[in-house]
Amino acid sequence: MILEVAHLDVTPGREADFESAFGVAQALISTIDGYLEHELQRCLERPNRYVLLVRWNSLEAHTQGFRGSPQYQQWKALLHHFYDPFPTVEHYRAVESSRS
């Protein structure tokens, strides 16, 4: 399992619009082969900062499957104009976990 971590800085004052657009966009990502689950969390100290956590069964499911899909083009149109600066995205593999 691969964990995608995206740090999302939304233009201040556009948080509600971003969250609404994300509500639509999340249906797109969940249709991709290899997608497992996701969560969007909002920072308490910096209310325009979010972290998106997406679990994939492989790195390629994200980097080739999702990013190469028509759904990604829709995702970009819905969300990318909210970011300032553009997000940093990294991928992680578990070393230790308390999850069963």
Rank of each mutant, 00 (worst) to 15 (best):
G65K: 01
V51Y: 00
A61W: 04
E4A: 02
E60G: 10
L8S: 00
R55K: 12
A21V: 05
Q73F: 14
Y35C: 08
R93Y: 13
A77M: 14
A27W: 07
V24E: 15
P12G: 05
T31Q: 15
L40H: 07
L40D: 03
R14P: 04
P12L: 02
V24G: 08
F86M: 15
A16Q: 09
P12W: 04
A94C: 09
V54H: 03
R55L: 09
C43L: 03
T88I: 04
P70K: 09
G65H: 08
G23S: 00
G65S: 05
R55N: 11
S97W: 06
S98I: 12
L78D: 11
R55Y: 11
T63A: 11
R46Y: 08
Y83F: 15
W56E: 04
R46D: 13
Y50C: 01
Y35Q: 04
F18E: 04
Y72N: 13
L59C: 05
P70Y: 11
L79T: 09
T63G: 07
A94V: 05
R42V: 02
W56C: 04
A77V: 11
Y92A: 04
A27M: 09
I32R: 08
H7F: 08
R46P: 07
S100V: 05
L78T: 08
F66L: 03
P87T: 02
E90R: 07
L52R: 00
Q73S: 13
N57K: 12
F66R: 03
P87L: 01
N48L: 00
L44W: 15
V89A: 03
A77K: 13
P47I: 00
A94R: 03
E45S: 14
